[in-house]
Amino acid sequence: MQRVNMIMAESPGLITICLLGYLLSAECTVFLDHENANKILNRPKRYNSGKLEEFVQGNLERECMEEKCSFEEAREVFENTERTTEFWKQYVDGDQCESNPCLNGGSCKDDINSYECWCPFGFEGKNCELDVTCNIKNGRCEQFCKNSADNKVVCSCTEGYRLAENQKSCEPAVPFPCGRVSVSQTSKLTRAETVFPDVDYVNSTEAETILDNITQSTQSFNDFTRVVGGEDAKPGQFPWQVVLNGKVDAFCGGSIVNEKWIVTAAHCVETGVKITVVAGEHNIEETEHTEQKRNVIRIIPHHNYNAAINKYNHDIALLELDEPLVLNSYVTPICIADKEYTNIFLKFGSGYVSGWGRVFHKGRSALVLQYLRVPLVDRATCLRSTKFTIYNNMFCAGFHEGGRDSCQGDSGGPHVTEVEGTSFLTGIISWGEECAMKGKYGIYTKVSRYVNWIKEKTKLT
């Protein structure tokens, strides 16, 4: 034993070699072989497995989906700052455009905790909710729209109204504003409101030439003092309507412009014939205590009207009353817009006519005020429907199939267009061939041609 100890002390290297040989010859039971080890760690190889990531292109799944990435790591994937920024906006807080917040056709661009709407022409605001041009839906104005110097929408209202708090709607500024039905039992019968379409306001006024200088022999019209197929109006439903009495009662109609003036057809009036105007009328054979009678003290036909040349060209006249009318729910003026808007309103496509005229061709006159909704007829169809001249200051309205029309005794009465609950004068009943005849239409004086003249002559002093 002493000898062994001496050998170990003198030859430590020998001992180490012996131990190493023993270990190498022993069977290893701690580690699995290569094949079995792979069965336990069965993990798919990654895209760049075996390579240094710093030297390969980034992978979106590896960089940002398996674990949260930084902007720089995302930049490695896209290799483009702009594309990385677009991805980053949604990656950080989701897609803010998912709810489609942009209105009126706006395009949404996502941002971090926010979004941006790219608005089409005519709109602005956070969600493109603000109209900035009158060309689109009248700028959301209830009545009139004008573009300011910086191309912003400025709404306005006709006389007797003021802008509401929203700067879009119009509200009454006087007790009985024009064009409004205020009798409670008839307010439910107000005709369907007309909503502004998209309009090209630059070209809204037709490029028409008034044929002022045409000389033409007097034409022989049949029954051209021209509501057939209409309905009984309720008291106060058309408070701007008046009836004219002269040699015979209810020979023509008219509309209240203001307390002192009536507008009617020029062919209705004769110099030297006494005319009485009755406002607030409903049943011409009954006294309903809503009527107001006034005498006409002055007749002003349009300066281009000449019955000797043509009885229905420039067929418009103004009547001055001896005493002002007292405005109330049964006696209310009709609204008159400017030339541009009167023309736009007419193009809405349908209007209402009213009167006490004959209820059928050569038949009896109506006792109760009649009204009828009539569609506008395109000019080409209008011209083809008659052998008589249709001037540019006239328009056609009615039904091709016949059966409904204005008729004798309705002449001078109103053709009105309702705009968001307020009625505007767009025409004056003038003439036609018979009444409600198939293929024939009622012919009306186009008020847009005469609004400046009306307003100039009827100013209240």
Rank of each mutant, 00 (worst) to 15 (best):
G363I: 06
T81M: 06
R162A: 09
V154A: 11
V269H: 03
K109G: 03
G179S: 01
R162V: 10
L163I: 08
S430V: 14
N295K: 11
T218V: 09
T422M: 03
V92P: 10
Q237V: 08
V359F: 13
S49K: 08
V77T: 15
S365Q: 14
K339Q: 14
N393H: 11
L319G: 02
N452E: 08
F196T: 09
F251C: 05
N295D: 12
K234Q: 07
S25G: 09
V195G: 13
Q96V: 06
R373V: 07
V359C: 07
K137R: 13
G21T: 15
C134T: 02
L24V: 09
S49P: 14
K45M: 14
D110M: 05
C252A: 02
Y115M: 02
C396W: 01
E116T: 11
K109F: 05
G432T: 14
K459I: 13
T389M: 06
H415A: 02
R404M: 06
T225P: 09
P44W: 08
L24S: 04
I136Q: 08
A265L: 02
V326K: 10
G351K: 01
L367P: 12
K440N: 14
S182C: 03
L163H: 01
E73D: 15
H289W: 10
T287M: 11
Q241A: 13
I40S: 03
I214Y: 13
S423D: 03
C28Q: 04
M437S: 14
E323P: 04
R140T: 03
T225E: 10
N283P: 04
D95N: 14
F176L: 07
M6A: 14
Y330Q: 06
E116V: 09
T85W: 05
A337W: 00
E420I: 07
R364A: 14
N328G: 08
D198P: 12
Y450K: 02
T426W: 01
I300W: 05
T194H: 14
S114E: 08
R43V: 15
R449W: 10
V181N: 06
V227T: 13
N42P: 14
L383Y: 11
R162Q: 08
Y22C: 11
G349N: 06
R449E: 13
N283Y: 09
T422Y: 04
I334T: 02
E79H: 13
D315R: 01
A266W: 01
S11P: 10
N295Q: 11
E285P: 10
G398F: 03
C407T: 04
R3N: 09
L130I: 10
D232G: 05
T225D: 14
L376H: 06
R226F: 06
I443R: 04
E76K: 15
G106R: 01
E323G: 04
S354E: 02
R62A: 04
D93Q: 05
P101L: 03
R358P: 08
V174H: 07
A192I: 08
S406W: 15
K347L: 07
V296S: 02
A9V: 09
C145F: 00
R180A: 05
V368P: 09
E124F: 06
M8R: 14
F123I: 04
N151M: 13
G413D: 05
W453G: 00
I299D: 03
L41E: 11
T190V: 12
T342R: 00
